[in-house]
Amino acid sequence: MADPSERPPKRRRGLGIWFKIGFLVVAAAAGVWYVVANWDETGPALRQIGWGAALASVPPVVGAGIAGMLAWRRLLADLGHPLPVVAAGRVFYTSQLGKYLPGSVWTFLAQVELAKQLKVPRAVSFAVSVLALVLSLAVGLGIAVVLLPFGAGDALRQFWWLWLILPVLAAAIHPAVTTWGINLLFRILRRPPLTVRPSGRGMLAASGWQVLSWCLMGLHCFILVRAAGAEGWSILPLAVGGFTLAYCAGVLFVPAPAGVGVRELALGAALATAISPQAAAAVVLVSRLALAVVDMGMAALSIHRTRHHEEST
């Protein structure tokens, strides 16, 4: 007869699998709807930019996703719960589909629940999700601060004010500041504080991965901007800085799925300082399509790996 003490873990595992299946079905359906619902606008923009440039812009987005995952994994290891790369990718990429549901809570919830199946405490994975979000925003806005004033056209005069927030961004990624902020949030939620604080070395390593992620995202935008008619390398600072600023603005606007609307408006405004508004709109639409396709593709790959892993165990 089986030991009764073994039954609860099996039940929890079953519930975890049902959560995973339900989340994936709903989030994937939302992602597909996100692409299909905007195809009337995206189709003409894709023809204007060209399939060649659109496809060439995809590999940098894939690289950015890998770097972002490695930043999240490094933070998780810094708090005492290292994961193998494949397992970390399975959690990270699957949870990213939560961006296509209204509100930012779904990505957090998915990361917490999926990491729990890998024996990461919910409090730790939640703290890492918050850390990763703060780090991503701080690094992304920092890149925008540095690069946008040196962009093409009228960017220097239009974005000078970003320099004013640079000291705030630098403070936001200091381990003492982030630990205080997370413990304050835990106190509000009536949860115990972190027992392990992030280290300076861990934050620096994760910041390096995040810098690479944002730069690759900006390279994706640069490829599209060049295809839209911009000439020369002087447009590169504007493409990278404008994209990071726009994407961060979309993340900060919580109600919009994947930052839709806000991100496009901010990126279009930045790019319009160097190319025509019509060309900027085409870049925005094709970029949105490329990011959505990569998100769903990397999630599908992680699901395939998960299924293969479960069948072999």
Rank of each mutant, 00 (worst) to 15 (best):
3 D>W: 05
5 S>L: 12
8 P>K: 14
8 P>H: 02
8 P>M: 14
13 R>A: 14
16 G>A: 12
19 F>G: 06
23 F>P: 05
24 L>N: 06
24 L>S: 13
25 V>G: 04
27 A>M: 13
28 A>D: 10
33 W>K: 10
35 V>E: 10
37 A>I: 11
38 N>W: 13
45 A>Q: 03
46 L>V: 04
53 A>G: 07
53 A>R: 00
57 S>C: 05
57 S>K: 01
61 V>G: 08
62 V>G: 10
69 M>F: 11
75 L>C: 07
77 A>Q: 09
78 D>I: 01
79 L>Q: 05
79 L>K: 07
80 G>D: 08
85 V>L: 15
88 A>Q: 07
88 A>H: 08
97 L>N: 02
106 W>G: 07
107 T>V: 15
112 V>H: 05
115 A>V: 11
115 A>D: 05
125 S>H: 08
129 S>R: 04
137 L>E: 03
137 L>G: 05
138 A>Q: 03
139 V>W: 00
140 G>H: 10
143 I>M: 07
144 A>T: 04
145 V>W: 09
146 V>C: 07
152 A>N: 01
154 D>F: 05
154 D>W: 02
156 L>Q: 12
159 F>K: 03
169 L>I: 13
170 A>I: 15
174 H>G: 08
178 T>G: 04
180 W>Y: 12
180 W>L: 15
181 G>F: 15
188 I>E: 06
190 R>M: 06
198 P>D: 12
199 S>D: 10
204 L>A: 15
208 G>Y: 09
210 Q>W: 06
212 L>F: 05
214 W>G: 01
216 L>I: 03
216 L>S: 06
217 M>D: 06
217 M>R: 04
218 G>R: 03
221 C>F: 02
221 C>T: 15
224 L>W: 01
225 V>R: 00
226 R>H: 04
231 E>T: 12
237 P>F: 02
237 P>G: 00
238 L>N: 00
239 A>W: 02
242 G>R: 00
243 F>K: 01
243 F>L: 06
244 T>D: 11
245 L>T: 01
247 Y>W: 13
248 C>Y: 08
254 V>L: 07
255 P>D: 06
256 A>F: 12
259 G>K: 03
260 V>H: 11
262 V>Q: 00
263 R>H: 00
265 L>Q: 09
269 A>P: 00
270 A>Q: 08
271 L>V: 00
280 A>Q: 07
290 A>K: 01
291 L>S: 10
295 D>L: 00
296 M>G: 13
297 G>F: 04
300 A>D: 05
303 I>R: 06
304 H>F: 14
306 T>C: 05
307 R>W: 15
309 H>I: 08
309 H>N: 13
309 H>F: 15
310 E>N: 10
